[in-house]
Amino acid sequence: MTRRNIETLVGLFVLIGFVAIGYLALKAANLAAMTVGETYVVTARFDNIGGLKPRAPVKSAGVTVGRVASISLDGKTFQGLVTMELEKRYAFPKDTSASILTAGLLGDQYVGLNPGGEDENLAAGDTIKMTQSAVVLENLIGQMLYNRAAESGGEAKK
C-alpha cells in the first residue's frame, strides 16, 4: 500500500473518531443546550434543601433559566445557602420566591422560581427572600400518620 493510501485511511480513522466524540458530546451530553450565555448570581436560603445538588436546573414556569452553582450551610442562620447562576436575558422581580421541587415522584430536585409583581428586578448578588423548602417524604408520612391518629381519636370520642 502506498504512503498516500495509508495516510488517507488514517485520516479517515481519525475523522471517524472525532465524529464519535462529537456525537457523544452533542447527542448524548447535549453540549449545545448547556448554559453558555452570560449569567448573574443570585442566592437563596432554604430551611431544608432536601436532595438538591450543584448543577441542578433552576426553572421558571418549567423553562430552565439557570443552574445551581454551589450549596453550603449558612453558619449564622443554619440554613442551606444555595447560589444560583441565572441567564442574563431573563430578569425576575425582586419579590420572586424560590422553592425546591421534585421532577416526578422520584426524580431529581430542582429550584423553581415564582415571579412576583414588583417593578424592580433582581440584580447580581441579590438574595431571594421568600423561599420554600424541599418536601421531605419522611415528614409528610409523619404528618399523615399524625392526622390519621387525630381523626380516629376524634371518632372514638363520639
Binding site: F13, V14, I16, G17, F18, V19, A20, I21, Y23, L24, K27, A28
Partner: peptide
C-alpha cells in the same frame, strides 16, 4: 485508543 473508545460508545448508544 481514545478514538476507538469514542467509536465504541457511539456505536453502543
Amino acid at each position: 485508543m481514545p478514538l476507538l473508545a469514542a467509536m465504541f460508545s457511539a456505536v453502543g448508544i
